[in-house]
Amino acid sequence: MDKKKIYSKWFLVPSMTVFTVMFVIPLILSLFFSLTVWNFDGFTFCGIDNFIMFFEEQSLRIGIKNTLIYAVLTSGLKLIISFFIALFLTSNIRTKTLQRSIVFFPNLVSTVAVGVVFTALMHPSKGLINKGLEMIGIAGPDWLGNPDIALFSVIAVDVWKGLSIATVIFIAGFMSIDKTYYEAAMIDGANFWQKVRYVTVPLARSSMNSVIILSFIGGLRSFDLIWAMTGGGPGFATDVMASIVYKQYAAGYYGLSTAGNVIMFVLIAILAFPLQKWLLSKEVE
């Protein structure tokens, strides 16, 4: 049987063409354009000036730091919280179908819509969150207006929205674990936490890795929630790489914007690829 004949390469051509023209070529061009001052009509070569500027300018450098904080915190929190939600939703409670649907729903609401609603809920004087805190005697902060906490407020909303998919992945992982492991553990006299520690955690490793990788990469790339809630402000307190790329583009500094884009690629390449490799190697053990 001639494999080359049945599985003709032509089947790959449509996808590869679109992908190459709209993704790969721009990717390669970005390496070049990041070394220039350019617009859509022409360019002047300027060496690595754009990158130097990125690391010298406080308002640009902060983007790298914020992106890292954002990615690490969102993926960590999603991992831990959704693990326990999934554990709860696979226990023998009665309303699990209803609760699963409720937890899942935010996944379908657009990020901008989530941003709009939470910006209102986090309003410093009228927002529901601070009203609630007032009732128990705590003066709530200005969640999105205070530069020290704004980033963390956005992170909290990102976690809120991202919990659903992470929970779904965990539920699937937990349900695929053979029941006999739990029975064996029970016979050996393991209590609930021991079962979680020695059966669930090791056997749900691949779901755990999916959650970490998905949310970590999502965190490094995130833009729309931040843009809808704070627009990078107050000041530059919540600017991440993706929002800087947009801001520099809007301001007409295309070279700087492209350099920001390239820095994003590098960040992802040096963080996410090794992370994935490492996680996969642990999975095999």
């Binding site: 023209v21 993704f23 721009p26 990717l27 859509f40 990469i217 884009n261 690629f265 390449a269």
Partner: peptide, 12 residues
């Protein structure tokens, strides 16, 4: 993993 290179895409 890698996000889109935005401005070069517009250029293309």
């Amino acid at each position: 993993m890698i996000p889109a290179a935005i401005l070069p895409t517009i250029w293309v």
